[in-house]
Design a protein around this nucleic acid. Structure first.
Length: 210
DNA sequence: CGCTCGATATTCT
DNA sequence: GAATATCGAGCGA
């Protein structure tokens, strides 16, 4: 039921980030009047908080860009970064919290691999969606999808919660940030071969980057 | 394999 | 002006 899916996201952002590892991210597109599903199993996520998290876009309050982090849970928060890339989050936070979102960093491609290969213009399956910028390019995600309800299985971008979370999930330091380096809010399936590249070194160093 | 660096739009100071 | 929740090319070992 949809209310169950909503309550899944209405918990601490770190908890949701952890349990999303193993769930299926699905993008539905229209190609030559055919409905095609793209996506795969989520293997890497990061939690971003509010005033407790200096590296979060929501840290300094509500703005036009980050408003999805403050609204309904289970919505896509998409932003453009480094003049090149889009990143996809799903909003999630505890009932008494003001803002929060989970950055989806990598998936293990399983559906529509040929189409994703075209969007990405690479052949290596391990490079298809193993990083937040790669993932959005593989799934043809941009700002038009910002705010879409990801709890609704009819949405052209959604997360299917009826698959199990990964059996073993590891918490590590987050990647590519310069503040709040102490929080272990990055969650991975360490057995996956589809993690973002920075992840592999982190798994062994167990130290924050930068 | 690992490291450095340029690209380049939006937000923040 | 500076920083940024990134990526891939180019280089060296």
């Amino acid at each position: 039921v949809n209310s169950d899916r909503n309550s899944f996201y209405l918990r601490r952002t770190e908890t949701v980030a952890r349990e999303l590892v193993g769930k299926k991210l699905i993008r539905v597109i229209n190609v030559d009047k055919r409905i095609i599903r793209l996506g795969g199993r989520i293997v890497e996520t990061e939690a971003y908080g509010y005033s407790d998290d200096a590296s979060s876009h929501a840290y300094k309050g509500r703005r036009k860009r980050n408003e999805m982090m403050f609204g309904d849970v289970g919505r896509a928060y998409i932003y453009f970064i480094y003049g090149n890339h889009y990143c996809l989050n799903v909003s999630a936070r505890a009932k008494d919290a003001s803002a929060g979102a989970v950055l989806l960093r990598a998936i293990e491609p399983s559906e529509g691999i040929d189409i994703m290969t075209k969007y990405r213009n690479v052949n290596d399956p391990f490079s298809l969606a193993s990083g937040p910028g790669k993932l959005t390019k593989a799934l043809n995600i941009d700002l038009r999808l910002n705010g879409i309800d990801m709890t609704n299985y009819d949405s052209e971008l959604h997360i299917e919660l009826d698959t199990e979370s990964a059996s073993y999930i590891e918490a590590t330091y987050r990647i590519g940030i310069t503040k709040a380096l102490d929080k272990k809010w990055r969650f991975i399936d360490p057995s996956s071969r589809y993690l973002s590249w920075t992840n592999r070194s982190l798994r062994y160093n167990d130290k924050p980057v930068k």
